[in-house]
Deep mutational scan, measured.
Amino acid sequence: MAAAAAAGAGPEMVRGQVFDVGPRYTNLSYIGEGAYGMVCSAYDNVNKVRVAIKKISPFEHQTYCQRTLREIKILLRFRHENIIGINDIIRAPTIEQMKDVYIVQDLMETDLYKLLKTQHLSNDHICYFLYQILRGLKYIHSANVLHRDLKPSNLLLNTTCDLKICDFGLARVADPDHDHTGFLTEYVATRWYRAPEIMLNSKGYTKSIDIWSVGCILAEMLSNRPIFPGKHYLDQLNHILGILGSPSQEDLNCIINLKARNYLLSLPHKNKVPWNRLFPNADSKALDLLDKMLTFNPHKRIEVEQALAHPYLEQYYDPSDEPIAEAPFKFDMELDDLPKEKLKELIFEETARFQPGYRS
Rank of each mutant, 00 (worst) to 15 (best):
A2Y: 13
A3C: 07
A3M: 09
A7W: 11
A7Y: 13
A7S: 03
G8N: 14
A9P: 12
P11V: 05
E12Q: 05
V14H: 07
R15L: 05
G16V: 00
Q17K: 05
P23A: 12
R24A: 13
Y25W: 11
T26K: 12
L28K: 10
I31E: 15
I31L: 09
G34C: 05
G34N: 07
G34W: 00
A35V: 02
G37D: 03
M38A: 04
M38W: 09
A42R: 05
N47T: 08
N47S: 04
R50I: 15
V51W: 13
A52L: 03
A52P: 05
I53G: 13
I56R: 03
P58M: 15
P58F: 15
P58Q: 14
T63N: 11
Y64L: 06
Q66M: 06
R67W: 05
R67I: 14
L69S: 11
E71R: 11
I72Y: 12
I72A: 13
L75F: 08
L75Y: 15
R77Q: 03
R77Y: 11
F78G: 08
N82H: 09
I84G: 12
I86L: 10
I86D: 11
I89K: 10
R91Y: 14
R91W: 14
R91I: 14
R91D: 14
A92N: 15
P93G: 13
Q97H: 00
K99N: 00
D100T: 15
D100I: 15
D100G: 13
D100H: 14
Q105I: 13
Q105W: 10
M108F: 14
E109M: 10
E109T: 12
E109Q: 07
L112P: 02
L112Q: 00
Y113W: 08
K114T: 05
L116V: 13
K117A: 07
T118I: 08
T118K: 04
S122Q: 09
N123P: 12
I126E: 01
Y128W: 13
F129Q: 07
L130Q: 01
R135C: 02
L137P: 01
K138I: 00
Y139T: 11
Y139N: 00
Y139F: 01
S142D: 15
S142Y: 15
N144I: 00
L146Q: 01
H147V: 04
R148L: 00
L150E: 03
K151V: 02
K151H: 06
P152F: 06
N154Q: 02
L155A: 08
L157T: 09
L157Y: 06
N158M: 11
T159L: 05
T160P: 06
C161V: 10
K164C: 08
C166V: 07
C166M: 08
F168A: 09
F168Q: 03
G169F: 07
G169M: 06
V173I: 09
A174L: 11
D175G: 03
D175Y: 00
D177E: 01
H178I: 08
H178E: 04
H180P: 04
F183M: 09
T185N: 02
E186D: 02
A189G: 09
Y193D: 02
Y193P: 04
R194N: 05
P196V: 02
E197A: 02
I198S: 05
M199D: 03
N201L: 10
K203M: 04
G204F: 12
G204P: 02
T206G: 10
K207Q: 03
I209G: 03
D210R: 02
W212I: 01
W212E: 01
W212Q: 02
S213F: 04
G215H: 01
C216F: 01
C216K: 02
L218Q: 01
A219G: 06
S223A: 01
S223M: 07
N224C: 09
P226Y: 05
I227A: 14
F228H: 09
P229M: 10
K231C: 10
Y233G: 03
D235E: 00
Q236S: 06
Q236L: 01
L237W: 11
N238A: 10
H239E: 08
I240P: 04
G242F: 11
G242M: 09
G242T: 15
I243N: 05
I243G: 07
L244S: 05
L244F: 07
P247C: 13
P247Q: 05
Q249A: 08
Q249C: 12
Q249W: 12
Q249E: 08
E250V: 05
D251A: 02
N253E: 04
C254I: 07
I256A: 09
K259V: 06
A260H: 09
Y263E: 03
L264N: 06
L265M: 04
K270F: 11
W275S: 06
N276W: 13
R277W: 12
R277V: 14
N281Y: 00
N281M: 11
D283C: 15
K285E: 03
L289V: 13
L289A: 06
D291E: 04
M293N: 06
M293W: 08
L294M: 03
T295L: 09
T295Q: 10
T295W: 09
N297M: 09
P298N: 13
P298G: 12
H299Y: 00
I302M: 11
V304M: 09
A307V: 08
A307G: 08
A307N: 10
L308S: 12
P311R: 11
Y312G: 04
Y312A: 12
L313W: 07
L313I: 13
E314H: 15
E314T: 15
Y316D: 09
Y316Q: 11
Y317D: 12
P319E: 08
S320E: 09
S320K: 10
S320M: 10
D321G: 07
D321F: 13
P323M: 13
E326I: 15
A327F: 15
P328E: 07
D332G: 02
L338S: 08
L338Q: 00
E341H: 14
L343C: 13
E345A: 15
E345H: 14
E345I: 15
E345V: 01
L346K: 10
I347R: 02
T351N: 06
A352M: 03
R353S: 01
Y358L: 06
R359K: 01
